[in-house]
């Protein structure tokens, strides 16, 4: 598997797009800046919704309204993250594709996306979600998990730079 990924990384690194990203010095920091700004938007939106579940943010508005306001914009921003992330991989394939931290980040991302999408759907389906005493604890457990998973994604994202092959 690793040989396959190394081979694919070498092929990707030899493409003209990868060559351009590697040689034009401002492209990678610019892509990383856009990537981090988008991470800031997605992460903050998720955290504010999680705080609402804990009744620590705008508790006079129902959870369905808060998810509508803060989770709906997450999806187009995730598309920009996917594009900038893909371009960064094309520019430096070995940095991510032959790096266990990158796969940890992607696994956590899948969990975060599923969690966020489920929460958004559930809140729309039942506007008073997690409001009654019985379900409040479930909501708080999910909100804690959401914050931890997003923090894990950001942590892993930074550690990709420190765990890449050849270091």
């Amino acid at each position: 598997m690793e040989a396959l990924l190394t081979g694919f990384s070498k092929w990707l690194a030899a493409t003209s797009l990868s060559h351009t990203i590697q040689t034009v010095t401002w492209i990678i920091p610019t892509l990383q800046t856009i990537h981090i700004l988008c991470v800031a938007i997605v992460f903050s939106s998720a955290v504010l919704v999680d705080l609402r579940i804990f009744r620590l943010f705008e508790r006079d508005q129902r959870l369905s309204v808060i998810t509508q306001r803060f989770l709906t914009p997450i999806w187009p921003v995730l598309v920009i993250l996917l594009i900038t992330g893909s371009l960064l991989i094309i520019g430096e394939p070995r940095r991510s594709l032959v790096n266990i931290t990158f796969y940890l980040k992607m696994a956590l991302l899948i969990v975060a996306v599923l969690l966020t999408a489920t929460l958004q759907r559930a809140a729309v389906a039942s506007p008073g979600l997690f409001e009654d005493n019985g379900r409040r604890l479930t909501g708080q457990a999910l909100a804690t998990l959401s914050v931890l998973v997003w923090c894990g994604i950001l942590f892993a994202g930074r550690w990709i730079a420190y765990t890449q092959a050849g270091l």
Partner: peptide, 18 residues
């Protein structure tokens, strides 16, 4: 520490953007 810094900065910037 850098990872903690990135998480905190993201929250600062994201909430200010809101």
């Amino acid at each position: 520490i850098e990872s903690v810094h990135v998480i905190a900065i993201c929250l600062v910037v994201g909430t200010i953007f809101a």
